[in-house]
Design a protein around this nucleic acid. Structure first.
Lengths: 136, 136
DNA sequence: ACGCCTATTGATAATGATTGTCAAAACCAC
DNA sequence: GTGGTTTTGACAATCATTATCAATAGGCGT
């Protein structure tokens, strides 16, 4: 049986609040900062649960951390993430969905899940980087 | 200056030998098993170098490990990976390449890199899973 | 071939994220 | 309220990866 605890709600709320992708550690930090005495292990468990139920997205950052994001609807979408400032843009990818499914099918694969995320530098960070690199 | 050491060659060779994706730890283990006294840290360094030079692919497994794979040509491609047995199929994804670039551009992002990998169950594992699930 | 300088190695410690443990506390049905 | 069970949380354990740093070995000039 699954019980309703304020901790789980707190994690869900914090995730909504964050807006973009957050690491488990980051979420725990944020919760502590707002006075919640929630435990770190609990945050991990809650996030794992949310991800399993489809209430949260999870992906691996290039640095190997697990990042989570609120996902009110359980629908499937992908992300464009600034590797410098973390800005996240949701992107639709019907073309990719279809492509992934057909490629999987062609090779006899079933239950195809796919990881499709684009990392780059957003406009602001691109400008900032140019400033840093060209000030000769 | 970059020097030629037998260790680097050994890692490159072991990577070729592996055929599919291997974890750094796994490679180190394999090397040790074949009698090489190479150090773990060195394997990590060699893999990082190979990846940076485009001689190896790297991706994050769903479990958070970094996996590496030999990649003779430095060209860009993606993978279809069986989440049960680890079977890896290389897939071409020109469509996705173009899509990723254009999506990034539309949002003002530059230096777009993308993570596109499809996980699923290969034909064999699908059959095996069916056997496990339906033996009523 | 010799030697010097520096890049590389490797044993180990350090780090950092994540997971396991287990007694205490909280939740829900009755 | 009570009971039985789930969940929590502090802490230890684990795991991959990275840093440290003295010792080694590669490569260039001679």
């Amino acid at each position: 049986m699954k019980r309703n605890t304020w901790q789980r709600e707190a994690v869900r709320a914090a995730l909504d609040d964050a807006g973009g992708f957050v690491s488990a550690q980051g979420l725990h930090g944020a919760l502590h900062a707002s006075g919640s005495p929630i435990g770190l292990a609990t945050v991990y468990r809650a996030l794992a649960d949310l991800a399993q139920e489809g209430d949260a997205d999870s992906l691996q950052s290039p640095e190997g951390e697990s990042l989570y994001r609120a996902c009110s609807t359980a629908d499937h979408h992908h992300h464009l993430i600034c590797r410098n400032c973390g800005l996240t843009v949701e992107i639709e990818a019907d073309a990719v969905e279809t492509w992934a499914r057909s490629v999987a099918a062609e090779n006899g694969f079933t239950q195809a899940a796919h990881v499709v995320d684009v990392f780059g530098l957003c406009a602001a960070c691109t400008a900032a980087a140019a400033t840093l690199r060209e000030p000769s």
